[in-house]
């Protein structure tokens, strides 16, 4: 097993490059997912605010009419 990890003496290079690749790819994915969730929440909040605002205006319009 340790022989496998040693990779013929080049373990640090090989595992290093695999680790960096894995970290970068996962980090990019996670950053994208987090940004996506944040933007979705913000969008929904904004939509909710605007939705709640518009009917009220309509109601007022109804009252005045």
């Amino acid at each position: 097993m340790s022989e496998f990890f040693a990779m013929g003496g080049y373990g640090s290079y090989i595992w290093g490059s695999y680790a960096i690749t894995a970290i970068a790819m996962i980090a990019l994915l996670v950053a994208t997912l987090r940004g996506l969730r944040a933007s979705r929440i913000e969008r929904q909040q904004l939509e909710a605010v605007l939705q709640s605002r518009r009917p009220r205006k309509n109601k007022k319009a109804d009252k005045t009419s």
């Binding site: 994915l29 994208t32 997912l33 940004g35 996506l36 933007s39 979705r40 913000e42 969008r43 904004l46 939509e47 605007l50």
Partner: peptide, 16 residues
């Protein structure tokens, strides 16, 4: 995923 993120952000800007 990133295109969705971008679309959301455009929508947010439009809403704002």
């Amino acid at each position: 995923l990133r295109v969705r993120l971008e679309l959301n952000e455009r929508r947010i800007r439009a809403l704002q």
